Simulated assay, not measured.
Amino acid sequence: MQEKGVRTMGYVTTKDGVEIFYKDWGPKDAQPIHFHHGWPLSSDDWDTQMLFFLEKGYRVIAHDRRGHGRSAQVSEGHDMDHYAADANAVVEHLDLRNAVHIGHSTGGGQVARYVAKYGEPQGRVAKAVLVSAVPPLMLKTDANPEGTPIEVFDGLRSALAANRAQFFLDLASGPFYGFNRPGAKISEGVIRNWWRQGMMGSAKAHYEGIKAFSETDQTGDLKAITVPTLVLQGDDDQIVPYKAAALLQAKLLKNATLKIYEGYPHGMLTTHADVINPDILAFIKS
């Protein structure tokens, strides 16, 4: 039962004056699990996981990245360093310890930077989980031949600037969840919920966030992480190529467990929550 007078959601103000919205559900003495959402969504993208782990007795926390969801639509700071610092502001505000940090897509980059720069040095992190995550580097370079060409990201920026609402609808109803695959079980509710979350946020934050998730080299972050880390990705991820992501993450991390799901899409935490949630639970308990 929720303690009387305890806030289950609220805002924390960062050192540079940005209001970050967060949810905090469950027993305050239980092990905390902190969820980090993907681009261009909000903490609502983790609702299924939060309810699942809440029912298992955990304390579950999620926050909206700056410029996303209900957090302040500020002009500046849409980069991985600020994303990680904002996450740390939530952690310190709630004094989370022995926490498990779980990140999807861009949120996986946020987790990697947070754990490497703040969480491990402060001794606050027990484990981490990277789901369809962007590290070490999405952009194709000579040193990263499995990455995605810059022209693809330039195309995302152009589509967003021209008609963000239609672009988000197309992304959610197509490659994000694999709904463009033959025989896919399409959910209109999932598409609408993705679009709803995206349109809550700032166009500027989303535009600049493309550079943050595609061009940030997080090789050093992954190498610095020593806590047990679960790496999950589908081999039919049309957004983040798994050969440039999960496979490299597992090589760079010191204590990684890797699982590749055959045929799963980028948004598998939603489409295959019935499989992903128990797998994450087993890792946390291990």
Rank of each mutant, 00 (worst) to 15 (best):
L222Y: 09
L222Q: 09
K223N: 06
K223I: 06
A224S: 11
A224T: 07
I225S: 10
I225W: 03
T226A: 13
T226Q: 13
T226M: 06
V227I: 14
V227E: 12
V227Y: 04
V227Q: 11
P228M: 08
P228D: 08
T229A: 09
T229R: 00
L230E: 14
L230G: 10
V231G: 06
V231F: 01
V231M: 11
L232A: 05
L232V: 07
Q233D: 13
Q233S: 15
D236W: 13
D236F: 12
D237T: 11
I239K: 03
V240G: 01
P241R: 05
Y242Q: 13
A244Q: 02
A244V: 03
A245N: 13
A246F: 10
A246D: 05
L247P: 11
L248M: 14
L248Q: 15
L248I: 15
Q249D: 14
A250Y: 02
K251T: 08
K251L: 09
L252S: 04
L253P: 03
L253T: 02
K254V: 03
K254A: 11
N255E: 02
T257M: 10
L258R: 09
L258C: 10
K259P: 08
K259Y: 07
K259H: 14
I260S: 06
Y261P: 04
E262Y: 14
E262R: 14
G263Y: 15
G263R: 00
Y264H: 00
Y264D: 03
Y264L: 00
P265L: 06
P265Y: 12
H266V: 03
H266E: 01
G267C: 04
G267P: 00
G267R: 00
M268D: 10
L269Q: 10
L269S: 05
T270I: 13
D274M: 11
V275M: 03
V275L: 13
V275G: 00
I276L: 15
I276N: 00
N277Q: 11
N277Y: 06
N277P: 02
